[in-house]
Design a protein around this nucleic acid. Structure first.
Length: 137
DNA sequence: GCCAACGTTGGC
DNA sequence: GCCAACGTTGGC
């Protein structure tokens, strides 16, 4: 079981949108970056991910689960771009802010800090546990 | 809204 | 295959 982090601008696709899709989930489409795509191709059913609000919010707000493995992105005919489906699992009791993450020495190697522009990122098991703790889960 | 950092494109 | 120019992302 692997862990991931999905970034989205809440104005475009936020946690509330994700929750509204229920257990069927929704395609995480529109990714046009090879690294992010490769991460999605590596995802397995049941892998979990954090849902992060970028640009405004700047915090991890919830947990999602992969409910369909990599398949072509329905928003383009370009065969290069694949995506997975994700569904909301539960919100964090307390959102974990970027500020908190930056101040926690145990999280200093997170991809979120090292490569802030990558929109779909791997998260280590240790990082996952620490953030769940901070989030009151 | 600004702009630094990064990824992609395309001319050579 | 290099690298300048350009476009996009995302923190501030």
């Amino acid at each position: 079981m692997a862990y991931w982090l999905f970034k989205s601008e809440p104005d475009v696709w936020g946690w509330d949108h994700q929750v509204a899709k229920g257990d069927k989930g929704e395609e995480w489409n529109g990714v046009r970056n090879y690294q992010a795509r490769n991460n999605m191709r590596a995802m397995k059913l049941g892998d979990q991910g954090f849902f992060y609000h970028s640009r405004s919010g700047l915090e991890i707000v919830g947990i999602v689960e992969i409910c369909a493995e990599s398949h072509p992105d329905s928003t383009t005919d370009d065969e290069r771009w694949d995506c997975v489906d994700v569904r909301a699992v539960k919100p964090l009791k307390r959102a974990v802010t970027l500020e908190q993450i930056k101040q926690d020495d145990r999280l200093k190697d997170m991809v979120l800090l090292k490569n802030s522009r990558l929109s779909v990122q791997p998260v280590t098991a240790d990082e996952w546990k620490i953030i769940c703790d901070l989030g009151g889960i």
